[in-house]
Design a protein around this nucleic acid. Sequence first.
DNA 1: CGTTCGGTCCTCGCAGCGAT
DNA 2: ATCGCTGCGAGGACCGAACG
Length: 343
Amino acid sequence: MRDGERLAARTERSATVADVARLADVSTAAVSFYFSSRQEHLKRVGPEARERIRAAVEELGYIQNKTARHLRRQQSERICIVLPKLGIPYADKMVHDLGSVAAQQGLLPIVLTGSTIGAVQKILGEVEAGLADGVIAEVGFLTEEQVEQTFAPFNRPCLVIHPTAQPRSYSVLNSGLIDALECAFDDLLHKGHRDFAYIQNAEMQHNPRISALKARAVRAGLSVLITTMVGADAREATAGCARNIAEMAKRPTAVLLDSDYTAVTLIEEFARLGIQVPSEIAVVGCGNAEEGFYCNPRLTTIGPEWLSLLEAGQHLIDSLSAQKPLEAKAFYTPWRFIVRESA
DNA sequence: CGTTCGGTCCTCGCAGCGAT
DNA sequence: ATCGCTGCGAGGACCGAACG
């Protein structure tokens, strides 16, 4: 490129730190320190230099080039949150709360969905290629073996949210969902229920909750009817499940679900079909229901101690911002069993 | 193989100030 | 006058990819 062309190209491009430094009559390092979030850097710029830099930035309309910053720092300053699906309260709350924790440390959360092992592996590949510095992945649909196969070779700080997986090079957050479901099952059994149904999303290839429930039922000499939700519109699919259950000759007296959101839809559809909850059928939804999240008095719901998620997320984010290797830990989310009304 | 892009950060050196 | 400390800025290496 000849000098004239280079000059022309430079006049078209946006201002750089060198332009700001020239105009403010300071070094590029001073401008860099001025924009640094670290106090030990910031304090190296005197008040007069700061004012000149501020004025130069304003005059040139300078905006930091994040690509160059990430290139030099070898950090993207992004954290990737991987969820099976979006648009459900559990996912939305997780994104909101983890996003807040990340933002406090100057990390930008990016959210991607992956509900198959292939999709998750593709995302991890993108992260290793520089998409993000670390990952928080909700992968309850994978087996323990698949979790290890997928995340053990992954060389970035990672938190895996899974009911039973063990920490390896990555941290894990074991949700107490299975324990809570067993607790709910035992409670319903104690109240005299003998015919159970469990509603699961048909998209799930592997659901350890079903194995746990079946084992519990076998021990009690019972069986659990599994009904599946099919279709992109979960609300309509749940309503379809309610209609199927309503039409059964020998209807279950208790229905267990993973999601409190789905449970509310199920209860509404039962009401439309003239089936009373909980006098005719008990509905137990497991989700992130806080007290009053869904104030439906007919719903017996189980909710997690959300703080465990935030603690696990904070642990990962702290290691990212300190640029230290992750000290892999195991976290546990105990799920509360909140009985709003005796079923 | 060398250069370029833009921002970061380490090293080095200078200026200023107080103590001796 | 000299020494030592502190604050501060300049210089340059460095990062990965593209391109000549």
